[in-house]
């Protein structure tokens, strides 16, 4: 057998594997796969695509009676403002653990952090 130990095809496969690895690290180790998980937003009974909590962002969401603003930073989220009279959603404060949720009923917007490793299964109020 006069074929080399490592053929040109092998080098190609190795190169492609390394590219694949680089891509995996880039996508899974940046934001989306962070622990602490994803933010699920429910607007009027419909769920929006989940959002990563590993970013700094202020979101405006249109609900039934107006626009609520959410603040995402350092793996946590809260209602910054909401057009509801009670302001319960704003008073709920920051959510950071899997399973925690907050809702603005009048505006029909609910937030929940994904994952079941939260400290609490649910919140009584």
């Amino acid at each position: 057998m006069n074929t080399p130990l490592v053929t040109r095809g092998d080098w190609l496969v190795l190169g492609a594997s390394l590219l694949l690895l680089a891509w995996l690290y880039a996508t899974l180790w940046s934001s989306g796969g962070e622990t602490g998980g994803q933010l699920h937003i429910l607007v009027d009974g419909r769920e929006l695509p989940p959002i990563s909590l590993q970013q700094e962002r202020t979101l405006a969401i249109d609900g039934s009676i107006g626009t609520s603003t959410l603040r995402i930073e350092n793996g946590r989220v809260r209602f910054l403002s909401s057009p509801c009279p009670g302001q319960q959603c704003v008073h709920t404060g920051w959510l950071s653990h899997g399973g925690e949720f907050a809702a603005c009923l009048p505006n029909r917007i609910a937030l929940q952090i994904g994952g079941d490793e939260g400290r609490f299964d649910t919140i009584n109020f």
Partner: peptide
């Protein structure tokens, strides 16, 4: 657990452990 707007009844367990719930602060947050 059925939690209707903050009030709840729980039956059984969460797998190997009991259900754990948090009670909100009446004033302030968390």
């Amino acid at each position: 657990i059925v939690n209707a707007g903050g009030d709840l009844r729980a039956i059984g367990r969460h797998g190997e452990r009991a259900w754990r719930i948090g009670i909100r602060q009446p004033r302030g947050e968390g």
